[in-house]
Nucleic acid binder design. Structure first.
Length: 278
DNA sequence: CATATGTCCTGAGAGC
DNA sequence: TGCTCTCAGGACATAT
């Protein structure tokens, strides 16, 4: 579930490693099927151990540790991955560890379901993999005209389109529903029937919701999986308006209950009164 | 090119 | 109580 706000929170939680030198890297053996780590560990160690961390960045839903030579180590949490500075939710699912020179620091990668990935790319591989044709502009940078240019001719429903990382990077299933509810757009509305004025509203709502969610350190759902780098839960789940709230009254109109539909095999939540099809 | 669908994986919760 | 089954949705490969 980690989307842009959760991954950004992970990034901010490990900023202290900027400037630190990597002293050890370890793939942690656990009973589960091992997660994908590429290339092999000896290559990763050879290229990273003894080197200094230039910056900790984010690209879409990935945490990026960038070195001085622009080698980048990426953490891709997918469903249940966490980047932690200490205290994992359980020792059982720790998959990867890194140690640093500054003040005995350590980073853990924890992943209950193990769908996440860790990989090292050189600058050329990184630029190619995340070129604009492979990953859209960051969701915090969108504008109405930009969204209209990206999606304006698509026949797909807006909710499904917003999840396409090639178009816009960072929005996932939870925030897509939240954004469209605040923007008062029906999730099944075709992109090519959305006006520029509505694209403006979707853009400003996207930025507002994602920034607020970051300020609250993301959303920890009822399964409790997502945590910040200190293993503390986020707070934005308390501000959700529609996600996972089927049957509860809409907080805007206070009159209609939230409806759940399935689009592209994913749940969508919305209010039939506040989000008209027209 | 755009869009749709199946796959990976674990554990919580439903239903019997 | 304990078993089996379904479902959650990240990214991507493959199909249409």
């Amino acid at each position: 579930m980690p989307e842009l706000p959760e991954v950004e929170t992970m990034r901010r939680g490990i900023l202290a490693i900027e400037g630190a030198t990597i002293t050890a890297i370890e793939k942690v053996r656990c009973r589960r099927k091992p997660i994908a780590i590429k290339p092999n560990m000896s290559t990763i160690r050879r290229r990273l151990v003894g080197k200094k961390v230039q910056a900790v960045e984010r690209i879409g839903k990935r945490v990026v540790i960038r070195m001085a030579n622009d080698d980048r180590l990426l953490f891709e949490p997918r469903m249940t991955g966490l980047v932690l500075v200490a205290d994992p939710p359980s020792s059982e699912h720790v998959r990867f560890r890194m140690e640093f020179s500054q003040g005995e620091q350590e980073i853990l990668y924890w992943d209950r379901r193990g769908l996440g990935m860790i990989y090292l790319l050189n600058d050329q591989q990184y630029q190619e993999r995340f070129s604009l044709e492979n990953l859209g502009p960051d969701a915090l940078e969108v504008t109405g005209p930009l969204l209209k240019k990206i999606f304006g001719k698509a026949k797909r429903p807006i909710k499904v389109a917003l999840l396409d990382q090639k178009k816009v990077a960072g929005i996932g299933n939870l925030y897509a529903s939240e954004i469209l509810h605040v923007a008062a757009i029906h999730p099944a509305k075709r992109c090519d029937r959305i006006t520029l004025k509505q694209w403006d509203l979707i853009a400003s709502t996207t930025i507002d919701i994602l920034q607020t969610a970051i300020a609250h350190e993301g959303s920890t759902l009822s399964d409790g999986t997502y945590r910040n780098a200190l293993n503390d839960p986020g707070g934005y789940q308390n501000m959700h308006r529609v996600y996972d709230k089927e049957g509860q009254f809409c907080p805007i109109c206070m009159d209609t209950t939230i409806t759940r539909i399935v689009q592209a095999q994913r749940s969508t939540f919305f209010c039939k009164s506040c989000q008209k099809r027209s």
